[in-house]
Design a protein around this nucleic acid. Structure first.
Lengths: 117, 117
DNA sequence: AATTAATACATAGGATGGTGATATATCAAA
DNA sequence: TTTGATATATCACCATCCTATGTATTAATT
């Protein structure tokens, strides 16, 4: 594919961690590439997480105690399976509440005719 | 007020221009301080545009041809009244469409139970 | 057999844009 | 007289995501 639709880079800011935590709260474990494919799928190809965003983010979240991982040999490669920690679950709730509230508030300002149900 | 609620700084990124263009598309003209008060009001005090964000943004948008302004003496002060240009109106439509689409898409990923009506 | 695409992770450097701190100045209220 | 609201401005800083690049395996295509 030559042209891939993507949103202004800025819009995604502050949402990546929320997305990762949300997905990992519903699966026992996922690896990075799997996460990016899942997001692409769920978003209808509209949110494409870049390697250069995702892998550093996963590392940071692990460092911050929100995630942990196990390494596994798959074929000739080592794959990192990430899972969410207890702290990660708490953070996820906080992030999603904030995100939800923000979207509602922003809607009031720019889309006053809309309701988020 | 000692504590003011605000969203994670990052969430607002990419939305400020859309907010400003939206407001100015509905008023003949507004000045910076007025815009920040209006946004505070419309958001129920949850979105507080900082001087350090708003004024540079207004300048940049003017430089980019989306806004224009007239200066007026008000009391002992010079006040800058901004108004939206034709290019600004077109950009506004594009920004709001993108924002709306992004919010819908993000909802599918993190709030699959919700619908934006 | 060789090349391309997909899978899988990593990192350095750069761009962006909002924040915090600071500055200036008027005017109203305490 | 001092505080708070009004009104604008600038700049160093920072967090986050992107681009580019690198490595390496495996499957599909040519």
């Amino acid at each position: 594919m030559y042209i891939e639709f993507m949103y202004s880079k800025e819009l995604l800011k502050g949402t990546l961690s929320a997305i990762v935590l949300k997905l990992l709260s519903e699966e026992e474990r996922m690896y990075g590439y799997e996460i990016s494919m899942r997001v692409k799928d769920l978003s209808g190809g509209k949110i494409l997480l870049k390697d250069g965003s995702l892998y550093p983010a996963l590392q940071k979240m692990t460092h911050d105690g929100l995630l942990s991982f196990t390494e596994e040999q798959v074929g000739g490669r080592v794959r990192k399976y990430y899972y969410i920690t207890k702290a990660g679950r708490e953070k996820k709730v906080a992030y999603l509440e904030e995100l939800r509230d923000f979207m509602e508030t922003l809607s009031k300002v720019v889309f006053p005719q809309l309701n988020i149900a």
